[in-house]
Simulated scan of single mutants.
Amino acid sequence: MIPRSVVALQMIRESLVTKIFVVCFLAIHMPLLAMIAYLAGGYSSHPFPILTILLVATLVGTIACLAALWWFIRPLRLLATALKRYNAEGAPVRLPVEGTDEIGVVSRAVAATMNELEGVMRKLRQQAMTDQLTGLGNRRWLSERIVTEQARAEREKSPISVVLFDLDHFKDINDSFGHDVGDRVLIGVGEVIRDNLRRYDLAARIGGEEFCLILPKTRIGEAVVIAERFRTQLEKLNVDPLPQGRITASFGIYQATPCDSMQAMLLQADRALYRAKEKGRNCVQSFDWHAETR
């Protein structure tokens, strides 16, 4: 059988009301307990020492009561601070709460709920920024990342190139073989892109069969070489029942300037892409802004 003293201590630990009651009871009766101890010790009953003991005991009881109450509600203060940080900065709610009373239970439950909610929100944000079919970024993701890359390029005085390409006669694949085959083609293209990207390159699917590569630290001549490699790899892509070499793409390349918006970059790359289509598709064309303006 569990001793009653252990049961009582367990009840005090798990009940905020009991804790407050015990602390307030002891604090209120501190002067009385001090007076009883003083008189039981056989000390003088002169009014001055008695008043002094009562005053000191009252102060000690009051300070101890306030300190205990401060400690009891500390998890609530930590929770309030964490929630304010979450609302202001999106910081995860983490609390070093060890208590088993009502405040501890509520604090842990709120922290767990907020962390679970943050996990769900993080997944939703990722889904909103990802093309579900290919696993690449989408247009929204690209528009956010490209601003960062342009700022870095301007800060480091380094070039940045844009490669825009789309699959040749992709509609014919859907019409002749079905959308399931078309989807498998897009998935295969996504795999080719991921396998050939450098660690700092960006890739996104920005349309039905249209893709965009952002190549930091890359001049237009280097971008042409990279695009040719992608073009060759796509020609080798095998998706049953399509014949080998049926999957091809036309590429347009533009070396951006720091002041270019995303729309301007895509527009110039699209002009080069249009040239590639005019030249018979399955080729790489670049748009040299300096050459165009001379």
Rank of each mutant, 00 (worst) to 15 (best):
V93A: 01
G252P: 00
K84L: 10
R271H: 11
G135M: 09
P3G: 11
S5H: 11
L39N: 10
Y86L: 14
D168L: 04
F72T: 15
Q127W: 14
L66V: 13
Q132L: 12
A40M: 11
A291D: 02
Y200F: 15
V181N: 01
V56C: 07
T100K: 14
Y254K: 08
L66S: 11
V224C: 07
M35A: 15
F72C: 15
V192A: 08
A67W: 09
A203V: 03
E156M: 15
Q126K: 14
V120Q: 10
R219G: 15
E116A: 14
R231W: 03
D240Y: 13
L39P: 06
G119T: 07
I247L: 01
R4M: 12
N115Q: 12
G188M: 06
M114T: 05
A112H: 13
G90K: 01
T52F: 15
P49L: 07
G280S: 04
S176C: 10
G188L: 09
R125L: 08
L273W: 01
S143K: 11
P159W: 03
I253D: 01
Y38M: 04
I253W: 00
R198F: 00
A91T: 12
A151Y: 08
Q127G: 12
S44F: 04
V23E: 03
R152I: 07
G208P: 01
A82W: 01
R125S: 08
G208A: 02
L26K: 03
L213A: 02
P92R: 09
R198S: 05
S44Y: 01
T113Q: 15
I63C: 10
R155N: 00
G188A: 07
S261D: 01
T62L: 12
